[in-house]
Amino acid sequence: MLDSFNLAEAAARARVMATALALGRSLDLWSLALAALALAGLLWLTLPLTASVGLLLSILAGVGHKIFALRVAFDAALFHHWAEKWSSDGAEGRDPNALATDLTVFDRALADCGLATPGGDVVRDLNSRLRGAARLLKLQVLAVAIQFAAVAVAMVAVLLSRAG
């Protein structure tokens, strides 16, 4: 079922989500730094097993993070585009079905590019797209948190092995 938002409401929601998703760029930089630290530790240090496992887990979480980061960046650009488009279209008094038309055209384009399975006549509404984008951002945050925790465990393991 499609939302019954007017274009101004849809533009505002898209703008808020685009702004939230833009935070994913900072997370991506942190993830890259943590992955580089973990890789450097694995390559240049003789480590206890616990530390090595922690650093390896951090690198694996970084790979998972990158997958989420790419999707978040795609969605951020998309929601930014929609916010700009719907803001300008709303001012022109565009037809009331514009939102549904834009979402349908987008879904078809995704399917035509091989980036989604064709859904027939089923079109996801704006709210479900917003929830999906927020879920991806949360998964990206979780992946960075796992990376950080794994590096912290590795550091503690190194400190404990050297103290004992």
Rank of each mutant, 00 (worst) to 15 (best):
E9H: 13
V16S: 12
R25T: 15
A12T: 08
L45R: 02
L45K: 03
L45F: 02
M17K: 07
A14F: 08
L45E: 00
W30E: 14
V16C: 08
L29G: 10
L37K: 00
A38K: 04
L21V: 05
A22P: 06
L47G: 07
A40N: 04
S26H: 09
T46I: 05
L45M: 07
G24M: 11
E9I: 06
A33P: 02
T19N: 11
L32S: 11
L39E: 03
L27F: 10
R15S: 15
T46H: 01
L21Q: 09
L23W: 07
L39W: 02
S31C: 13
D28Q: 14
A11E: 12
L37F: 03
R25A: 15
P48Q: 06
G24E: 12
R15M: 07
T46G: 01
G41V: 00
M17F: 00
T46V: 08
S26V: 07
A40G: 06
W30K: 14
A11Q: 13
L21D: 09
L45C: 04
L39A: 10
A18L: 03
V16N: 12
L27N: 08
W30C: 12
L21N: 05
A10V: 08
A14N: 11
A20S: 09
A20R: 05
A10L: 05
R15W: 14
D28S: 15
R13P: 08
S31P: 03
L32Q: 13
A35I: 04
T19D: 14
A22F: 09
W44T: 03
R25L: 14
M17G: 10
L42D: 03
G24A: 12
G41R: 01
A40R: 05
T46F: 00
L21C: 06
M17S: 11
L32A: 11
L32C: 08
L34Q: 06
L39S: 06
A36S: 07
S31I: 07
S31G: 15
R25Q: 15
L32F: 08
A38R: 02
L34T: 01
L27T: 07
A20Y: 04
L32P: 04
S31N: 13
P48V: 03
A35W: 02
L21W: 12
L47D: 07
W30P: 03
A35D: 03
T46C: 00
E9G: 04
L23F: 10
S31L: 06
A35C: 05
T19H: 03
A14G: 09
T19E: 14
L21F: 12
A35E: 06
L27Q: 11
A20F: 00
L34S: 01
A18S: 15
R15L: 13
R25E: 15
A20V: 11
D28V: 10
L34R: 04
W30R: 11
A36Q: 06
A33W: 06
L39K: 04
R25C: 11
E9L: 12
A22Y: 03
